[in-house]
């Protein structure tokens, strides 16, 4: 308890930063759930591919510590472009390969979930075996720095040195913390505006509310679904960059635990509800940081899972309720 009080500021800032990352990933779950009523189990891999794209692009352009402000901004911008493009692509690919054939046959949701689990494993193992796979094409030497240690942590070359900007309660809040929290929340506000204002956003909401009526009104359902996956993927790509800046490394199976937590965040806020994803992510980030301060860091992941079970028990529709369109049982 004393530890929690002494480190309250540090725990809060870390919780907010990591919670913001959860929120961005949670958006992908919530978006797809809202439109298709199914859990995109493979979404965690979308995040993972984005994180690798971001690391690799920094390696390619030779990002290094001590770059000028302009350079750093350029590198980070490139990370965003690479990660968002990669994640968006993977997300659309998943939709095309793992979901669309099932949708055409009206397969039950459990079958879709199994397909998604399969896709998830194929994606993460492909990344985890990239050295072997590159070897098949004789590329393992050429790509050595990128495929080395396929099954271990891959660090992001350090390009920003976290610097304290101001301090609360003795904890130096760094520029990275601020960037992650503000950046992630800004992205979500943009997305919220996109969904409520743009024509595509209206299409998404229409399909979420009533797919058949939307189709009758001339909304192209397949296109809306593709866009949904794309947007969720792009957000996961952004999340990957924020995550790397905060945590500093990634690996082929990083998606699993983050995915389950992001899903928890989505359910916590009310799945299918965009603002719920934001709230859920932040609450989860804070809860697991405070919780682990109370019972020990090694129990951090357990805290998150227990929270998930407890929410489902007492408020299965989440804090803000389920509504991209409106909740249907």
């Amino acid at each position: 308890m004393q530890f929690l009080i002494d480190n309250f500021a540090a725990l809060t800032v870390t919780g907010l930063a990591i919670g913001a990352v959860y929120s961005l990933i949670a958006l992908g779950y919530t978006f797809v759930y809202g439109v298709l009523r199914l859990i995109n189990f493979a979404h965690s891999e979308v995040f993972m591919y984005g994180s690798f794209a971001a690391v690799w692009v920094v390696m390619v352009i030779g990002g290094h510590p001590g770059g000028s402000i302009g350079q750093v901004i350029f590198w980070v911008a490139l990370m965003f472009v690479a990660a968002m493009a990669m994640s968006g692509l993977v997300a659309v690919l998943i939709e095309r390969v793992a979901y669309r054939p099932l949708r055409k046959r009206n397969a039950p949701p459990l079958i879709a979930l199994i397909s998604a689990i399969g896709a998830s494993f194929v994606l993460s193992e492909t990344m985890g075996l990239r050295e072997k796979i590159a070897g098949w094409f004789g590329l393992d030497d050429t790509l050595r720095p990128y495929v080395n240690n396929s099954r271990n942590n891959v660090p992001l070359p350090s390009i920003i040195k976290p610097q304290g900007v101001f301090s609360i309660q003795g904890y130096e809040v760094t520029n990275v913390d601020i960037f992650v929290i503000v950046g992630a929340i800004a992205m979500m506000i943009m997305l919220d505006q996109f969904v409520s204002r743009s024509r595509l956003g209206r299409g998404i909401r229409a399909v979420a509310m009533d797919p058949e009526a939307a189709a009758l009104m001339g909304v192209n359902r397949d296109r809306v679904i593709r866009v949904t996956f794309l947007v969720g993927g792009v957000m996961a790509g952004a999340a990957a960059v924020f995550y790397l800046l905060k945590i500093g490394s990634t690996r082929y199976d990083v998606g699993f635990i983050l995915g389950v937590k992001a899903f928890t965040a989505a359910v916590l806020g009310g799945i299918g509800n965009l603002r719920g994803a934001l709230l859920g992510g932040i609450v989860l980030g804070l809860a697991e940081n405070y919780g682990s301060a109370l019972v020990g860091t090694e129990w951090k992941d357990v805290v998150a899972f227990v929270l998930l079970v407890v929410i489902l028990l007492f408020r299965p529709t989440g804090l803000l309720g389920e509504s991209l369109g409106k909740a249907r049982a």
């Binding site: 390969v97 793992a98 099932l102 397969a107 079958i111 879709a112 199994i114 397909s115 689990i117 399969g118 896709a119 998830s120 494993f121 194929v122 193992e125 492909t126 075996l129």
Partner: peptide, 11 residues
């Protein structure tokens, strides 16, 4: 990898 693929193909 193979079982992941198998799950997908079966589904």
């Amino acid at each position: 990898l193979v079982f992941g693929l198998a799950l997908m193909l079966l589904a």
